[in-house]
Design a protein around this nucleic acid. Structure first.
Lengths: 337, 337
DNA sequence: CGGCTGAATTGGACCGTTCCAACACTTGGC
DNA sequence: GCCAAGTGTTGGAACGGTCCAATTCAGCCG
């Protein structure tokens, strides 16, 4: 596995085929201007020498890389969003491939070598220093999972507020008035928006005539979910319905209910934001608000490609509404309780 | 977001600072040979002009990219392994970042532009055409999740056979003699190995004195898991313990047990290969054989970096044993049944 | 036969870096 | 006062492609 052996260049091929390097270059881009028999001779030489084009040289010459960057902060620590991330990444890769782009993952920890035609920021806040670097390099970019207030910055994100609203409306329809939200870091935009949407819908429906207990988990480990749920559910004024704003907190809540002998949905209705794996196979199957992450990936890829290739048309700011999927963890409030 | 405005080059900076481009280059690599006041002047110019190095040019000149490629086949269709993938990718990114490498994701669908220093194949079979291309380019490479029979090809994989064995041994210890395996595509190496390990341990313990029903699911959708489980469990000779060789099949099995009123672990012990999200929060918490995917990611990253940088030392072929995590879905065979 | 046209091919400039050999300028020793 | 040994700085040749303008050459027409 030596790094020795100089690689075959276009010049070597040219010599072997008895033509100039320009001709070889033309053949490689299958230009129609090359005579058939010349083309064949060049192909033979190409094959024989096992020529592999040098991507850096090509990029340098034509000023494009054929690569889109995906920047995200501390991928590995975002345990939170792992499953979600892989959903979005799968869609990104698929659509980028359709447009003949590869994808490069940037880690904020490594000095940024901008070897891309455009950059996507996934769950990176708009004021992150990384963003400035990309702006200064005059690269096209777009945000995923983050929205901005201005009208220019391109983004594709979820309508988190609408998601929170969906949950609240479902509870309202079922007659619940004492509700709770189990959340995490309500300062971070996506979580803030979920909570705001939830509380907004509640206020619209009941005015002041409802109670909403908001509990903030200290982290996303199951233990924190358990502790948060316990604080919410062990008191005398426990809510009859809970909106879990992050799926990592769900297992803790379920455990807690088991320990308190609270039955779902008999004693407590539960809606979870995100549709984690097996949510539908749990006992009972959990009602969820599912963000359309594949959709975000797909639209995000289309967006950055159109920006890179200078096409117009596609709207540059998109919000996608999550869907409510009703399963068996929610039920009408029982007034006999 | 125009692509117009020519980028600032090292020459522009040199002119602005009143030095030669060589000096600027030296400053950029902070060479100690530059006089302090020159250095300062250059930095000022660098800042003022907002210089951003051109990665392609640098790569071309020094013959290294600072990027490791990760190739995988149809990422998006590998729903199977999504969660697993993100675990491994997190670890890869973390370790590569420590060594100052970025990661590029190759999609087999896009013509391969080899703009990397080394390549990792994740769950790609060793005879895949992609591999040949990389070999011909004389790039260092290694396989993840696949092993080879020769002694040279570098890989980091799981000891799947040991995983199957662990499951069987646990069942044997608990006294189960009528067991089943719910599998998928037993022709694919990782699945074949799991099954072989399981059956091997069984044969060693019991000789011919055990029955092992192997059911192959048609795909990985929950419905297929359900159908497979039904075939295995609805007959009169149903096993008392089942090894689910792929976690995607687990929800179907659980549903099936609910429908047949089989209680876990009372009527049926269950072990699942892979430790999917929330397996420990299910009712009952599921006993699993957990592959150490982060470990594979970490070691894989170290391996490819050492190959790229020409260091020796690290063993080039590693198998990592999964761990058995006993929860509450397994229990001794009850002879009164 | 000379001139024109178009197809096929080619040389060379260029992309933006790195890196090496050469050069200028101090400094210090004798 | 001259030479040797540094210390800083620099020009220019790579790196391996692309692409444009120039060139060659055959075929055709008047």
């Amino acid at each position: 596995m030596g790094r020795t052996h100089r690689n075959v260049t276009i010049r070597d091929v040219a010599k072997a085929a008895g033509v100039s390097k320009s001709t070889v270059s033309l053949v490689l881009q299958d230009s129609p201007k090359v005579a058939p028999k010349t083309r064949e001779r060049v192909w033979a030489a190409l094959d024989k020498l096992g020529y592999i084009p040098n991507a850096a040289a090509r990029t340098l010459a034509q000023g494009r890389t054929g690569v889109i960057g995906l920047a995200t902060v501390n991928f590995n620590q975002k345990l939170t969003e792992r499953i979600y991330f892989s959903g979005i990444m799968g869609a990104l890769l698929e659509v980028l491939a359709e447009h003949k782009y590869h994808m490069m993952i940037y880690n904020a920890a490594v000095p940024l070598q901008l070897a891309v035609d455009g950059m996507l920021f996934l769950s990176v806040n708009v004021d992150h220093p990384l963003v400035d670097q990309v702006k200064r390099a005059r690269l096209p970019y777009a945000f995923l999972n983050r929205r901005t207030t201005d009208a220019e910055t391109p983004y594709v994100s979820h309508d988190f507020a609408a998601g929170g609203r969906l949950a609240a409306e479902h509870f309202i329809e079922l007659g619940h008035r004492h509700v709770g939200v189990l959340t995490w870091r309500p300062g971070i935009p996506p979580h803030k928006e979920r909570l705001a949407g939830f509380q907004g819908a509640l206020a619209e429906a009941y005015g002041g005539g409802a109670t909403c207990t908001v509990i903030e988990a200290t982290d996303l480990m199951p233990a924190a979910g358990y502790k948060g749920a316990m604080r919410m559910l062990s008191g005398p004024a426990r809510p009859t319905a809970v909106f879990v704003s992050n799926y990592e907190l769900l297992p803790g809540l379920l455990d807690c209910c088991r320990d308190l002998s609270l039955r779902i949905p008999g004693d407590l209705s539960v809606i979870c934001f995100d549709d984690p794996w097996a949510a539908g196979a749990m006992d009972p199957p959990i009602t969820v608000v599912r963000p359309a992450s594949e959709e975000v990936g797909r639209l995000g890829a289309e967006l950055i490609v159109s920006l890179v290739e200078g096409r117009q048309g596609r709207p540059a700011q998109t919000l996608i509404s999550p869907r409510l999927i009703v399963r068996e963890s929610t039920r009408p409030f029982d007034h006999r309780q």
